[in-house]
Design a protein around this nucleic acid. Structure first.
Lengths: 346, 346
DNA sequence: TTGTACGCGTTATCAT
DNA sequence: ATGATAACGCGTACAA
């Protein structure tokens, strides 16, 4: 269905007996146009319902005001908060955002990145999928000077902006907290180890154990494919059936942590007395589950805003400041709730 | 920072000694181009890393393959699921989605709609904000034949596609269920009444009471501005302090319902024996809170997919099928959990 | 202060 | 089967 031709600066020019260029300039308050003309043009534009065609402007300028965003799943607390932050910061500066999700499939990720490139985004913000092990598909951006910001799940070896949290320290602190609560046999629900976030969390966990003189028992480390509720339940059941079950679990996300809590309750295990549990992300469910889940807060919204700022800084930058690499590490916060707090439940 | 000029069909044409039009056609498998030429062109395009410039194509075709999406807050279970559905259906057909959020502010909504229009989206999917009482800002789309799909929170008087659930029936059934459980004094947490969804839910609640011969007590109907957790808590406390507190609460969303449950527990009120609670949406927290929250499931993801389908149907439609109005009402499902189930807690 | 002319990358139309 | 040309709407160098 073809759309009607829209009202352009040419139509406006004809109507006002000006040249199109004068209209164009007046509309953007060019200094060489008289106040009066600007006023006339703007008034007429308003009356006629003129709206600029951004496609044409972007093509002409070889530069769009659209930021591409790629996440694994839009429909997840972390992602949606991240996107929300990105959108708020972007729209405030007159930038649009183009969104796509990979559903954690490498194939989709590559296709989405291509699509975003074809749309000539002025920058791209991306979180890597579970299956992603190389990031060649982002090379095309670097090649033409379009900034790439990787956030949260980031590659090891790509020259780009990076916005992350310190997964290692957060995990170390979380595990350390469990030890302070008296846990001596702590299990860990780990995620795919080729992803920085899960690698960091596992390493923090292991180092906290070592630092405190506790044994690292590989049978207590369950590595999961997608950290789903089902996997969390299965792992919890499996662990509790062993001769020597854990007295604490540090989970790489809240989904599996909440799942662990529900499963432990089903098994009649007392939380946190017999098994203390701590998660990661501070999803809404964390504060609702009973006992409330201790977790690590993830400043998703702020991360999104920062990502946008990185893109804008880069785009608005003048020549001569080509540094396209900068790593931002945001603070996390350990939130201690009932699921790991033995002090209040002596 | 200016970007490098990109590799175009002209470069490809020069390199292969073909005309740009041949390249253009070969790239889209035009039937008039020989197999051999197509192969040659595609191979070279691949080698040179040629990527089409969608901006140029859209400008030339006066038709983009981008769907605009406007929600109130990206960062909400319903919205993010909706968007996820929209994105999945769109990307499958090679369409992109441009997202913005109004944060429930009318001013933002108008600005976002303008921005989406300026980007020449081929269709727009929107959920109205809390403050929105008129939808003039959508007229510009109708004017040039761009389809508008309103979803969930929709206007009463705008010719467009509409994707909704039957709020009235869902609310009626939810309230009826509370009555079946023995509730006789049921409160209602209502939302802004100029929005169809909250109006429908309230009406369903009222009619269920009437149908069952129960009195409609205005003091039991609390109308909230934003249906936030804080409002839910305040309303619950207020209700329970009265001489004649309710024995059931039908809430217009899960946020206030969960808030009610937590507040009731704090007050030592037994759920569902003394007060049964039911929410709306089936957010993740609904199944986690204790007792688990009965609620109405909202097929957000499917609604999103349907919205996209409406746009695509319209866009791909040939001339002569101009019907731009069609109302789709999706089924909801009453999910009975512990917060309203007195049968299992005699 | 305003106007003219061209090009951004693509595709549709009309030729050859 | 392929090529030449114009046009989509806008912005800008250059001219007046």
């Amino acid at each position: 269905m073809k759309k009607k031709k829209s009202f352009t600066i040419y139509d406006l020019a004809r109507k006002l007996n000006y040249s199109p260029s004068t209209i164009s300039r007046a509309l953007k308050n060019h200094h060489s146009i008289s106040e009066k003309t600007i006023e006339i043009v703007k008034k007429a534009a308003e009356e006629e319902g003129y709206r600029p065609n951004i496609l044409a402007a972007s093509l002409r300028n070889n530069q769009s005001k659209t930021i591409g965003v790629l996440v694994t799943r839009i429909n997840r607390p972390f992602s949606s908060s991240l996107i929300s932050g990105i959108e708020n910061a972007a729209s405030k500066e007159g930038y649009n955002i183009l969104i796509s999700q990979s559903n954690d499939l490498y194939k989709n990720e590559v296709a989405s990145v291509k699509a975003l490139f074809d749309s000539r985004v002025c920058g791209i913000i991306a979180t890597l999928g579970m299956e992603t092990e190389n990031v060649k598909h982002f090379d095309q951006f670097a090649k033409i000077g379009v900034p790439v910001v990787f956030v949260d799940r980031v590659p090891a070896d790509f020259e780009s902006y990076t916005v992350v949290i310190d997964n290692y320290t957060a995990a170390f602190n979380a595990t350390n907290h469990l030890i302070e609560q008296g846990c001596t046999r702590i299990a860990h629900f780990a995620g795919a180890q080729h992803l920085n976030v899960y690698r960091g969390r596992k390493k923090g966990y292991v180092d906290a154990l070592i630092k405190n003189g506790l044994a690292v028992d590989d049978s207590l480390i369950i590595t999961m494919k997608s950290l789903s509720a089902e996997e969390g339940e299965a792992a919890t059941e499996q662990l509790m059936q062993t001769a020597n079950p854990p007295d604490g679990i540090f989970c790489s996300n809240d989904t599996t942590a909440v799942s662990a809590i529900l499963t432990l309750k089903k098994l009649g295990v007392k939380i946190p007395e017999e098994v203390a549990v701590i998660g990661f992300n501070d999803d809404p469910i964390a504060s609702i589950v009973e006992p409330a889940l201790s977790t690590v807060s993830h400043p998703a919204q702020e991360m999104g805003e920062l990502c946008t700022r990185r893109i804008l800084q880069h785009v608005l930058k003048k020549e001569g400041t080509p540094k396209i690499e900068e790593r931002s590490v945001l603070d996390t916060h350990l939130i201690i709730r009932a699921s790991s707090n033995r002090k209040n439940n002596p």
